[in-house]
Design a protein around this nucleic acid. Sequence first.
DNA 1: TTGAAAGCGCTAACAA
DNA 2: TTGTTAGCGCTTTCAA
Lengths: 354, 354
Amino acid sequence: MSDMGKKKATIYDLSVLSGCSPSTVSAVLNGSWRKRRIKEATAQLIQGLAEEHQYTANLQARGLRSSRSGLVGLLLPIHDNRYFSSMAQTFEAEVRSRGQCPVVVSACRDPDEERQIVETLISYSIDELFIAGATDPDGVHEVCIKAGLRHVNIDLPGTRAPSVISDNFEGARMLTRAIIEQAQQDGAVPITADEVYLFGGRDDHASRERIRGFRDIKIAMLGESPEACIQPTGYSPAMTARAFETFYESHGKLPRCFFVNSSINLEGLMRFLGQHPHETFADIVVGCYDYDPFGSFLPFPVYMIRQDSEAMIAEGFRILDSTRPPAITHLIQPMLVPPRTALTGPLDALKDID
Amino acid sequence: MSDMGKKKATIYDLSVLSGCSPSTVSAVLNGSWRKRRIKEATAQLIQGLAEEHQYTANLQARGLRSSRSGLVGLLLPIHDNRYFSSMAQTFEAEVRSRGQCPVVVSACRDPDEERQIVETLISYSIDELFIAGATDPDGVHEVCIKAGLRHVNIDLPGTRAPSVISDNFEGARMLTRAIIEQAQQDGAVPITADEVYLFGGRDDHASRERIRGFRDIKIAMLGESPEACIQPTGYSPAMTARAFETFYESHGKLPRCFFVNSSINLEGLMRFLGQHPHETFADIVVGCYDYDPFGSFLPFPVYMIRQDSEAMIAEGFRILDSTRPPAITHLIQPMLVPPRTALTGPLDALKDID
DNA sequence: TTGAAAGCGCTAACAA
DNA sequence: TTGTTAGCGCTTTCAA
């Protein structure tokens, strides 16, 4: 029943079987036969044989010859995070719908790794690259340019290639306003500027913009913001947990109200929480820049920002489809998600009978 | 400064530059030169030139010639889930450490899609395939066999290829025991068999085993379990939410204690929660088969099962490295995670300065 | 409307 | 210790 032993059929096999030349077979099987003006009958003959012999193209051979591959890359900081994994999900669907094959890789925010991984992808002749949240977008850009690879930055902008990012400033403003208002309405005592903090992020474009938005609203609502209220802990949960711990040790409590720079940093808060009794944070108000379906239901109010990764990916493709796109930055509006909100995700589009 | 225009150097370019033959250059540059007994000096000469001219191998050409590719596939149901995305993270690190290139794809639990995606990967001559949580592992197996592709099932077993899965029965027993004990100690009134439910999953091996474990412990602790207590809603959050809604409508509350078959189903619970006031579930106890760092901190006790995907991936490689591995199933022990526990993940291994 | 032929860049016998 | 040679399977002029 199975053709286990036999090697895969090639266009030469079909050429012999059909009595046509390899080039005709090739044209029929790669879809270019209409424009090569091959007779319908010939095409059908060959397609029939291909079916019968379970022909599938050798994509490495095709790619070698045409110096393309049908592969489209997405470079992420990490897989293990709802923001990036939902981006991967969206990306994959879009690439598939274009008849190409997605390759999603992560570089753990290491600039060397980023470049090296992209060079590997280039060795496979990938056709296009989405660079999402790269620590060093311009370094990656260099590598791409050298290889003539079309690419676009997502999430973190570069200066040399087109970029699509969230409107981090506006998102941070929405988020900051929401948490301060919530804290104001919750508390018995009015909240003051030294009770509103920001944790997480580092010296990248997104963090800077978010900090700017945070400051902007905080000053407008509560007056001058003490420098100590901004704690850029990087993106690691461990460091973030330590920052909360330090704060807690010196103040005996957490800030009444704080902005967490990403869901990765929010995981740092979880690590802190795990070490302390429930009552320790009975009345905190948290804002998190990123959306996570479970993060929205923690035992205290968590406002979240959901970034529109569908729109970012779509815009990325639009840019790559255009000829000679300028190296400008496109802003995509994110959305404020109130506490206890379960949004639907990219998977909800599926036919899901059970 | 940049070589923008120039095309990439090939072994022929280096052959001319070095005065050696292409095959010598090839051997030096692909690492097989020691066993081809090429002079150290020759090797160094060529390596120097390669460096200087920024040579990188064309992996499609290499793959075409050697009918391999250096690509290793991981087929997932979805990306957008902490269990699978952390598996992807682990997989990627392991593949990289072996000098190969990971390709992680998702097939949305659609058996046709699963087969078709694998055929595409085969067209790229991938070297090995990890099939994780496939709806139809044996269908995928057929495709692999036909192409002579080494493969292993992860998470959901097949009958024809080696498989590595969680001990779902034992995991379910731990989880069921934990939530019943918790409910017993919380409640004023002793809990009875008709107050302990299971939601989610469908007719796959993992679900069956989990249901078996659930029943086993439930019967041992509380006596005979009414059939209505098992609600296999499939894996979609939407369907799961509907099941909770239906239950709630007819009982005016949620079960005091329930087992949720996966974190995807737990998302269904979030959707339900979002529609109802906090008080509705002041005293429920939940068990979720899967670990999610935020799921562990919801406003009611959530016991979770963390599956050891690192061990599963490692075992998968061990199997693929062995010759003619038998089609047996390897069980990996999962771990019970009490409420409010933040575990470290695959990323914590990184050097994370900021 | 189709075929012949030249390679894409690399590897691996086999010779030397 | 190194070179020669024949492809891997496909695309793509150019000619018929």
